[in-house]
Simulated scan of single mutants.
Amino acid sequence: MTNTRPTRSALLSADEEIDLARTIEAGVLARAALDGDFDTDAPLDDLQALTVAGDEAWQRMWQANVGLAGMLAGRVSRRHGLPEDDLVSEAQLGLAEAIMRWDHRRGTRFSTTAWIWITSRLQRAQRELFTQRDELRNAIDLPELVSDETADEQILDEQPPAWLDDLPVRERTLLQLLARPDATPARVRAQLGLSRSAYHRLQQRARELGAVAWKSAA
């Protein structure tokens, strides 16, 4: 599984979903037998063929429904100003759980189960991201920023924590911008002129360096 947006396949019919689910189940059992979890008289070649078919069925189910994960993640990202890449990753994990947990014998469509598990993952990720943002602001405890023409030239009305000076300019500026009450990833990216991937790399470095500097000053 990957964080990139996979190409979606055509939507599946109810019968196709059931056939894929049965093939996935057979593949899981075959792999368990190959791993020695239980004894079976089935030929080795048959078990290996079942595992391959199960993997292919899993991928087809994934491709047909990954668009739902991306749609729900994007909706949460836009509504709450949270990093879309992080949310897409969590939504895809929810989709993977749904594929493994869906019981086609209950008569419900797979999309119902997928919606539940994806939404659950997104709600958990949303709480964690909000907590991280609040903890970051509380740890930095920065006063309101005064905007300038360039994000790198942001200055403070009051003196920032001493440990903040130990950070490189870009990392320090990012933390200062994120400390604002109205900060959102999209707004900060625009102020710094960063792509989404560059923003996440800078954010990771800033968090790591900030944690080290903060602990050293404590």
Rank of each mutant, 00 (worst) to 15 (best):
L50P: 02
F38N: 05
E56S: 02
D41T: 14
L174V: 13
V188F: 05
A218W: 09
A114L: 02
T2N: 14
T131S: 15
L93T: 07
L82E: 01
D182A: 15
A33C: 01
S120V: 03
D37V: 09
Q203T: 02
T108C: 04
R127K: 15
A96L: 03
P181T: 02
T173M: 06
H200Q: 13
L192T: 06
S89V: 11
T150G: 07
G94R: 10
R78P: 01
I118P: 00
A53H: 07
A213C: 01
S120P: 03
E208Y: 06
L129H: 07
A125V: 08
A30H: 09
L178S: 01
Q92T: 12
R205H: 12
Q176G: 11
P161C: 02
A217M: 07
P83N: 02
G70Q: 09
N65E: 04
T184F: 09
W214V: 10
A198S: 15
L44G: 05
L68A: 10
D148P: 02
R127H: 13
L174E: 08
D35Q: 13
L44P: 00
W117C: 14
T23E: 12
V28Y: 05
E16Y: 03
L47Y: 06
A151C: 05
R189E: 14
W58T: 15
L68G: 00
N3H: 13
L122P: 04
T23W: 05
E25Y: 04
W115N: 10
V188Q: 05
D85S: 08
A30S: 11
R78M: 12
A73N: 11
D182Y: 06
D86Y: 08
N138F: 13
L142F: 10
A53P: 00
M100F: 03
R201P: 00
P161A: 01
R22L: 14
I24L: 14
R196P: 02
W58H: 11
A26G: 03
T112Y: 07
D46V: 11
L122Q: 06
P160M: 04
R5C: 01
T173L: 03
A114Q: 05
L44Q: 05
A198K: 15
R5M: 07
A33P: 00
D182S: 13
G70I: 15
A206I: 02
R5N: 04
T2V: 15
E17Q: 06
L136S: 10
I140D: 04
Q59H: 12
T113I: 11
P168N: 01
F130Y: 11
I155G: 07
A91H: 09
R170V: 04
A206F: 07
S120I: 03
R205C: 09
V188I: 05
D152H: 03
L122S: 06
W58I: 11
Q59N: 08
D148F: 10
D19P: 00
L82K: 08
D141I: 00
P83K: 04
T7D: 06
R106D: 10
A190R: 12
A33W: 08
Q191E: 10
V76E: 11
Q63R: 09
R101H: 03
A183T: 10
R187C: 05
A10H: 10
N65W: 06
G36V: 00
V76R: 12
N3I: 12
A98K: 01
R137W: 01
L136P: 03
L194P: 00
R22W: 04
E208F: 05
L129T: 02
E16C: 05
H104Y: 15
L87F: 07
L177E: 01
T23K: 12
G67D: 06
A139D: 13
G67N: 07
R121I: 02
R5V: 14
A139R: 13
R196M: 10
